[in-house]
Design a protein around this nucleic acid. Structure first.
Lengths: 157, 157
DNA sequence: CACAATAATATTGTTCACAATATTATTGTG
DNA sequence: CACAATAATATTGTGAACAATATTATTGTG
């Protein structure tokens, strides 16, 4: 009774993509004021998460991890350079590349960012199990959409 | 073993929101060329889905259903008016409201849009059961995020 | 009826996200 | 080594999203 055959395929309630779209917007809206205190937007926060793990990165390596391209990242990284969180320097070994590194200011921001997940979680009434389940399912979809069919076992066994 | 306690809370792989963000971007990227043939963007497509179901709508009613506000919808609807898919007229009964209706051109687009879901599904290798499961889980999250706690029983209790 | 309070939409300014294209550097083939 | 092919990043132009604010219309209270 949930087959795509019966009913209108153009019904908003049938769409898979709409809830994802809505959830993404709503989450961004929830993150915004929290991250604003750190002087970050959500995609900028994602860049910092990567850089806090491993540095330096290139525009391309950031794009691979965040599923974004230079058209989005270049201006974003320039803004982050302006606010003093990162540095952008041409790779001497390969002048095509731009190395992205954290500055002292960017490194200092880490401790303040550490309770962002907790603050956010406090604003959402959902238990940890559901969250993990949801995360893994969406991750499976991302893998499929990105063509990493190796990781495409959303709910299989 | 999946508790938020162990490990770094700022690890990209632990984030719930990132997969949702990535999935939303990737899906939009997938929709874009398909909808471009109809002269639509994804949010414009969502507006048409609503209007094909029930008309007229107001800016506010569309916003309620799509979780968007006038700051996003007003310019979007103006563009759709320009392309001739919808009409925007002040409600005579309440001049604050703007009634959004489909034009003949917008109505004619419906049949062409009917196979969008199928074309899209063809591009994603995922079974219907997983999709439905994912959809319902994300829908649960949307309900929580939006404060509709009535529908917030993703897996609670 | 006056007029504050509220409601619905519009505007402004900033930051993404993207396709298409341009620019510059490196690699590969002869 | 020349020079086409490729790779990495940047630029351009369009369309969202959003917070904050402005504008206009209606409602409610006296």
């Amino acid at each position: 009774m949930d087959l795509p055959e019966d009913g209108d395929p153009l019904d908003l309630d049938r769409q898979v993509c709409f809830p994802l779209y809505a959830a993404s917007n709503l989450l961004n809206r929830l993150y915004r004021p929290i991250l604003a205190e750190l002087g970050l937007t959500y995609p900028q926060y994602l860049v910092m998460l990567v850089l806090w793990k491993q540095t330096p990165q290139t525009v391309g390596s950031l794009g691979d991890m965040l599923y974004l391209d230079s058209g989005t990242l270049t201006p974003l990284l320039k803004r982050m350079e302006t606010t003093g969180l990162i540095s952008r320097t041409r790779d001497a070994g390969d002048e095509r590349r731009v190395l992205i590194d954290v500055t002292a200011k960017g490194r200092a921001l880490r401790s303040a960012a550490e309770n962002v997940p907790a603050v956010l979680a406090a604003g959402i009434e959902i238990d940890a199990t559901s969250v993990a389940q949801l995360r893994d399912q969406v991750r499976g979809l991302v893998a499929i959409l990105h063509g990493d069919s190796k990781n495409a076992d959303t709910a299989s066994s």
